[in-house]
Design a binder for these strands. Structure first.
Lengths: 128, 128
DNA sequence: CAGAATCCATGTTGATACTG
DNA sequence: CAGTATCAACATGGATTCTG
C-alpha cells in the first residue's frame, strides 16, 4: 500500500505511527500557538511570553525545546550580557503552517455546528 | 479582524480559542484513528476494538463518547439480545477527514526530516 | 534576559473486574 | 455484546524560587 496515496482512504497502520507524533505536537496546548506567532517573524524568549497569553515560563521553554528538537524552530543565542536568544521558524516549521491552517479553517467553519452538537448531547445526558 | 481571513497570518486570540478544542481532539491518542477507520464504513464496538491495535475498552468508549458529543460520530443502538451498537461518521465527521489528511500527508512527507532533526538535537544534548 | 530546578494539582491512560 | 466502575500509573501544566 502506498503511504503517499492521495485518496481519502484511512491511513494504514504504519502511516498512523508516523502521523501520531505530529498530531501529538499539533494537539498540545501551546506549540501551535507559538508557531502562529513565530510565523510573523522571529521573537525573543520574553517577547513570546508576553504575546502568548497565559503561558508559563516553564511551558514556553518546554514547548520551544520540543519544537526545536523536531526541527520546526531554530534557536539562536547571542552571548551578550544580558543574553539574547532569538527563535524563528525553520523552513520545515513554515511548511507546517499550511496544513495546520487547513485544520484551523475547518474548526472556525464548523465551530457552531460542534457547539450545537455538544449542547444537544449534554441536554440528552442531563435528562437521561 | 476577520476570523475567516484566508491569509497565512497567525490566528488571532479569539480564533485560537475556537481552534483549541478541535486541535485537542485531533491531537488525542485515539480519536483520529477511530475517524480513519470509520471513514471506510460503520463499525460495531468490538469491530473497532479489534481493528484499532492497542486501544483499551475504556479509551474506545471514552473516545467514541467525545466524538459523538462533538457531532463527528453517530451512535445507533439496536436493542436486540445481545445488544448491537453501530458507529459511523456523520457528515461533519467526514468533512474533517480532508484537513486531517492534509496534516497526515505533511507528517508522512516530512517524517524523515523530523527524525533527523531529533537525532541531531539528541546528539548535541548528550555530548553537551 | 533567559532560563533551570523543584514541588504540586490535575488530567489522561490503562488494567481489572463486573453487568444488563 | 457493549459497556460501567474502580483504582493505580503516568503525563501534563502551573507556581515558585533561584541563577549566570
Amino acid at each position: 500500500m502506498d503511504v503517499t496515496s492521495d485518496t481519502l482512504e484511512p491511513l494504514h497502520l504504519a502511516g498512523c505511527a508516523n502521523v501520531a507524533p505530529v498530531l501529538n505536537r499539533v494537539g498540545d496546548k501551546w506549540s501551535m500557538l507559538i508557531v502562529m506567532v513565530l510565523a510573523t517573524g522571529s521573537r525573543r524568549f520574553n517577547e513570546l511570553k508576553r504575546e502568548i497569553d497565559g503561558i508559563s515560563q516553564r511551558m514556553l521553554t518546554r514547548s520551544l525545546r520540543g519544537l526545536e528538537r523536531d526541527g520546526l524552530v531554530s534557536r539562536t543565542v547571542t552571548p551578550t550580557i544580558p543574553p539574547r536568544v532569538d527563535y524563528e521558524l525553520t523552513e520545515l516549521g513554515h511548511s507546517l503552517r499550511l496544513p495546520v491552517k487547513a485544520l484551523g479553517d475547518w474548526a472556525i467553519e464548523h465551530i457552531d455546528c460542534i457547539r450545537e452538537a455538544q449542547k444537544r448531547y449534554d441536554a440528552r445526558e442531563s435528562e437521561g
